[in-house]
């Protein structure tokens, strides 16, 4: 008899979070479907899109540059430490190239932009929600999905690949700095190896990842902001959720996309 009670309590404890989880998934799916629909149907707001592109892209350049340059540098150091007995000089350029373009630049750019932009989007849209500005948009016959969500999603998908390509160049340059100035390798060889070994798949992997990450960041920022409730505390929660959720999803998708592209 006692066991029944434990089982019942266990199921009861499981019940509510499960219901909440499933309804949250449903809510998010509806939000995604609506967003995608409004992304491709007029009216469009090119001015708002441009402003988002500048906000997300231009102002994220410093953080992306800083993270990718050190990522490239540390990879060069580690490769030297690990491969020195097999002739690190030829390996460094290639390892830096592959790890920066395929993994580090997209992941670092994604995480940095998630922290910077995902939070800002959730805070801005969340504040608009709790101060009724989103309702005000509707009463002025302007669809909030078209006016607020669509420009952000487009900007995320367009800008992140560009940031990642810039990050690629800077990361490889970081590796070059360490190889040439710290490890005293031949600069011409480094550049030659990098150019020779560069493959289309390296770039394309990073760009696909970046576009997906850009979408995820903007989506999580907008979604969490949009559904925030109850004043300053609600907006704070939305901001945290946006950053945490997009960071986790980025790392999971990073693995999944690598798996899809490289598993034969």
């Amino acid at each position: 008899m006692q066991h029944h009670k434990y089982l019942e309590n266990f199921l009861r404890a499981l019940g509510k979070p499960l219901v909440v989880f499933v309804s949250r998934i449903g809510e998010l799916s509806e939000f995604i479907a609506k967003s995608l629909y409004h992304c491709v149907t007029p009216p469009f707001y090119p001015k708002l899109l441009l402003r988002q592109i500048i906000d997300i892209g231009f102002y994220s350049l410093p953080v992306v540059a800083l993270t990718t340059i050190f990522a490239g540098m540390v990879i060069a150091l580690q490769t030297n430490a690990g491969f020195s007995s097999y002739g690190a000089e030829s390996a460094i350029a290639e390892v830096v190239l592959i790890s920066v373009t395929r993994e580090l630049a997209p992941a670092f750019a994604g995480l940095m932009v998630a922290g910077r932009i995902g939070a800002a989007m959730a805070a801005e849209i969340g504040t608009m929600r709790v101060t009724e500005q989103i309702d005000a948009l509707s009463t002025l016959s302007t669809n909030p999905f078209k006016y607020l969500v669509a420009p952000r999603l487009w900007a995320g998908v367009i800008v992140l690949p560009v940031l990642v390509m810039i990050g690629d160049v800077i990361g490889i340059f970081g590796g070059y700095l360490v190889a040439v100035y710290q490890l005293d390798f031949n600069p011409a060889n480094y550049i030659k190896t990098t150019v020779n070994e560069l493959q289309w798949i390296d770039l394309y992997t990073g760009i696909v990842k970046a576009a997906v990450f850009g979408f995820v960041i903007a989506l999580m920022g907008c979604y969490n902001g949009y559904r925030s409730k109850g004043g300053a505390q609600g907006v704070g929660e939305a901001t945290t959720n946006a950053v945490v959720a997009s960071s986790i999803i980025i790392l999971i998708f990073n693995y999944v996309i690598t798996g899809l592209i490289f598993t034969k």
């Binding site: 608009m128 101060t131 009724e132 500005q133 309702d135 005000a136 009463t139 002025l140 016959s141 302007t142």
Partner: peptide, 26 residues
């Protein structure tokens, strides 16, 4: 048209852009 309790003015826009929002957008 609606006057909201807290005003619900768009804080990313100037005062006149707020007033003219419906005129320009629709």
């Amino acid at each position: 048209g609606m006057l909201f309790q807290g005003g619900a003015l768009f804080d990313s826009l100037s005062v006149w852009e707020n007033v003219a929002f419906g005129l320009m957008e629709n």
